[in-house]
Amino acid sequence: MSDPTTGSVATTSTVAPEKAAPEGAAPKKQDKPRGLLGDAWYDLRRKPLFWIAAAFILFFLAMAAFPSLFASADPTHGLLERSRGNPSGDAWFGYDVQGREVYARVIHGARASIIVAVLSTVGTILIGGAMGMIAGYRGGWVDAILSRIADVFFGLPFVLGAIVILFTFNAPGSSNNQWRIMGLVVMSLVVLTWPVSMRIMRSAVLATKEADYIVAARALGAGAGRIIFKHLLPNCLAPLLVYSTILVGSFIGAEATLSFLGVGLKSPVVSWGIMISEAQQYIRVSPHLLLFPATFLVAAVLSFVTLGEAVREALDPKLR
Score class of each variant (00 low, 15 high):
263 V>C: 02
64 A>G: 03
79 L>M: 13
97 V>R: 13
87 P>N: 02
88 S>P: 03
194 W>L: 09
291 L>V: 11
24 G>S: 09
21 A>K: 13
22 P>N: 08
36 L>H: 09
215 V>Y: 00
17 P>S: 07
268 P>I: 04
138 R>Q: 12
283 I>V: 14
240 L>A: 14
212 D>Y: 07
34 R>E: 15
131 M>D: 00
229 F>S: 09
175 S>E: 13
307 L>F: 10
267 S>C: 00
198 M>F: 11
105 R>C: 04
271 S>F: 07
308 G>Q: 02
286 S>H: 11
9 V>A: 10
179 W>Y: 15
201 M>R: 11
197 S>H: 11
121 T>D: 12
99 G>E: 09
314 A>Q: 04
32 K>Y: 02
309 E>F: 03
208 T>Y: 11
50 F>N: 12
171 A>V: 11
133 M>Q: 03
108 H>I: 00
59 F>A: 11
212 D>C: 05
79 L>C: 06
96 D>R: 09
39 D>P: 02
115 I>N: 08
305 V>S: 10
30 Q>A: 15
186 V>I: 13
56 F>R: 00
74 D>H: 06
263 V>A: 01
227 I>L: 01
97 V>L: 13
225 G>S: 09
248 V>F: 08
265 L>I: 09
195 P>M: 04
6 T>W: 06
93 F>G: 03
20 A>T: 12
108 H>S: 11
311 V>A: 10
202 R>T: 02
115 I>V: 15
199 R>S: 00
73 A>M: 05
102 V>S: 01
199 R>P: 04
302 L>P: 01
272 W>G: 01
251 F>S: 11
95 Y>L: 15
265 L>W: 00
237 L>A: 15
208 T>H: 05
59 F>S: 08
12 T>Y: 07
288 H>N: 05
195 P>Y: 03
226 R>H: 04
36 L>T: 14
185 V>S: 08
293 P>I: 02
92 W>H: 02
271 S>L: 00
211 A>M: 13
306 T>N: 06
58 L>G: 15
178 Q>F: 03
164 V>Q: 07
75 P>E: 03
143 D>P: 10
274 I>N: 13
314 A>K: 03
200 I>V: 15
231 H>Y: 06
33 P>K: 15
310 A>C: 15
278 E>H: 06
270 V>I: 15
270 V>L: 04
57 I>G: 07
132 G>A: 07
306 T>H: 01
168 T>C: 08
293 P>M: 05
10 A>I: 14
178 Q>E: 14
138 R>V: 14
304 F>D: 01
83 S>V: 10
245 T>C: 10
52 I>Y: 11
111 R>N: 00
163 I>G: 08
281 Q>T: 10
119 L>I: 09
183 G>V: 12
35 G>L: 04
130 A>C: 11
133 M>A: 13
183 G>C: 05
133 M>P: 02
81 E>P: 04
250 S>Q: 10
